[in-house]
Amino acid sequence: MEATPRINASFLQQFENQTVIIVGKCIQVRGENALVEAGGNINVHLSPNGTCVPGNFVEIVGKVQPDMTVKSLLTTDWGTDVDMAAVDAVVDLTHRYKDLFY
C-alpha cells in the first residue's frame, strides 16, 4: 500500500514521479493549468474535473512530473479559512518523523 506524503514546493525534486498531497493557495487558473502557492509556486495540470478557485486553498493529490510540475489526480477545495502555518508544520513533521507518515 502506497502512502501519498504531504509536501510543498521545496520537496518537489525529492518526490519526482511519486504521488503526493499538496495543500496550497490557488493563485490563478488558465485552462487546465493552475498556479498554486505552497512554500513556493507550483504549476499544476488539473485533471478534467479538477477544481482550483483562485483565492481559495486547495488540496491536490497528484504526481510530480520530471519538469517539477504536478499532474493532479484529485483536487478538493478547502475554502478560504486555512491555517497555512499548520499546513507547513505538517509538511515539516511528515519528513522529520517519516515513520508516522510514509
Binding site: F57, E59, G79, D83, A86, V87, V90, L93, T94
Partner: peptide
Amino acid sequence: MNEINYHFLEAV
C-alpha cells in the same frame, strides 16, 4: 479542513 492538520500535529 484545519482539523486535518491539527490532527496530524497532535498525532506527532
